[in-house]
Amino acid sequence: MKSSKVGPWLAIILGALYFIVPLIATFEFSLRMKRGQYSFEAYRIVLADPQFRATFLFSTIVALAAIVVGALLVVPTAYWVQLRLRRLRPLIEFITLLPLVIPAIVIVFGYIRMYNSSSILPLTSTAAGTNVLLTIGYVTLALPYMYRAVDTGLRAIDVRVLTEAAQSLGAGWGRILFRVIFPNVRVAVLSGAFLTFAIVIGEFTLASLLNRPAFGPYLQLMGANRAYEPSALAIIAFAVTWACMGLIQLVGRGARGATPVR
């Protein structure tokens, strides 16, 4: 029995090496800015850079907007499909999978050509309009993950009974959605939200092609011009991704013990 465990351990250890060595290397490289000694100089420079703050703030705001729009779009739809339009489920699921099929660069290419200054809806002709388009693009990119999270959350509760109970107490549709359904799927929405944040925060293609001052293009610019700062930025980006995934687990674990709301 013991000898049969050598193979699995080998796979795990080699895998771990492949994934940990680049992180160590990146971290080590990020400390090398001052000659002959390890220091956090690169981090200090990055964190003090007004461009870093401005772009990170911009991407955070866009991410939050994408989360709100995504949740408002997905939760009512998934709820309604579950309650009334079960035969539409395959169609809706197919649509939510499309962003995995159509590469992001193709979607944004379509946006640029469809919503340019000569179109009926000239979103790209103003900065505000382009920000709207960028947010919408991120909602689209996160759609597969947001929809799956919310759909799983809705399957776990009895949508029909909750709706009928709320209706018999005189609640209208708005009240049912925001006071009954949303609180009951908040864990699912939150995990979708953190995943959206992780996708959006360092996203490069859309932000760059729409010419927005986001964190992803800033990262790319730093990579092209600096030596040590990019490694520090990579470590920061990894920490942000890790925090998002950790929060998903934390929220999910909290949900198991908690009692359903209302």
Partner: peptide, 10 residues
């Protein structure tokens, strides 16, 4: 999820 530009830096 750790793809994109930071992965290239790493």
């Amino acid at each position: 999820q750790f793809a994109g530009v930071p992965l290239a830096f790493a």
